[in-house]
């Protein structure tokens, strides 16, 4: 039986499981990227996708390439860490944030927001616009981090394809945007470029949720649709990291399909808005 014959849906055989384990272990030992605690099903799909894209017969062959050729590493990393995101994704979340969370932030002398796993930055700019519209831009610092350097480079540019802007506009309006969305961007024939928004107070940096620790105390942490790729242990670990990075009374925002059911015990959150997955750390 050859590997090519297997379809996506075929469950991995034992050998492939071993190979994937070895690959992840190799990736960690050689480069320090720790995907060992990611959900295996997703990882396997992505690794096999990469293996096929590189026209390699086995995962072991992919491992060999990765250990010896950094070009392969970058492509695999990109595959493993690529995420879907859009501006004002789940507009109701941003609406709730605007209407319910922002009033509570208003009185703070300084607001620090952390986008953990910001990917290509769509949400970061969404948040920045929102903060600006709420008149908090002066005292707000947004930190956007992701493991994927390529995604970060893209995020820093703040250029998003025109082909998606109609959806973004709709999202913006649904999320309660106060102005015309077109006031925030200029376009060319390919991209919409967002004006330098909160430029001084917007920081992009690489950060690995799996291996890196807390780097500040935040009033808001958004970590949406990031942990769904993590296995339960890692989710708990990241939850603890987020909890420990949160100021008392701070808010954490999760993805619409994520719940705190899997949080480790002992994290004292109050369900601030359960439908929008906004939780508040008890004081």
């Amino acid at each position: 039986m050859s590997f090519e014959e297997e379809t996506e849906t075929t469950p991995l055989n034992e050998l492939e499981q071993i190979e994937i384990n070895l690959l992840l272990e190799g990736l960690y030992q050689k480069y320090g990227y720790d995907f060992r605690s990611y959900v295996r099903t997703s990882l396997s799909r992505r690794i096999i996708h990469r293996m096929r894209a590189e026209r390699l017969p086995t995962i072991t062959a992919l491992l060999e390439k990765i250990l010896h050729d950094p070009a392969y590493l970058e492509r695999l990393l990109n595959d493993l860490s690529i995420r879907m995101t859009e501006m004002y994704r789940d507009p109701s979340f941003f609406a709730a944030f605007r209407n319910e969370v922002v009033p509570l932030l208003r009185d703070l002398p300084e607001i620090r927001i952390w986008h953990a796993g910001c990917a290509t930055g769509e949400e970061v700019y969404s948040m920045a616009i929102l903060i600006q519209e709420e008149g908090l831009a002066e005292k707000t610092k947004i930190y956007a981090t992701d493991i994927n350097e390529k995604a970060l480079r893209s995020a820093r540019k703040g250029a998003f394809p025109l082909e998606k802007m109609q959806q973004y506009t709709k999202n913006y309006l649904r999320a309660g945007g106060k102005k015309a969305f077109s006031e925030y961007y200029t376009t060319d024939h390919q991209f919409a470029y967002f004006h330098p928004i909160m430029e001084d107070n917007l920081t992009f940096a690489q950060h690995n949720l799996v291996t890196d620790g807390s780097f500040n105390e935040f009033h808001v942490i958004l970590c949406r649709n990031v942990m769904i790729y993590f296995n339960n242990d890692l989710q708990q670990k990241v939850h603890r990291l987020l909890y420990n990075s949160l100021a008392d009374g701070g808010f954490v925002g999760l993805g619409s399909k994520e719940s705190i059911l899997f949080m480790p015990p002992g994290l004292d959150y109050e369900e601030f808005n359960a439908t929008e997955r906004i939780y508040q750390k008890r004081k």
């Binding site: 025109l162 802007m165 109609q166 102005k179 006031e183 376009t187």
Partner: peptide, 23 residues
Amino acid sequence: DYIMKPFNINQLFSLMRVWLTEQ
């Protein structure tokens, strides 16, 4: 979408690019 008068023409063009681009 909407745009508030008076608007600058570049903003109008930017917006048009968005709405004339096939999504």
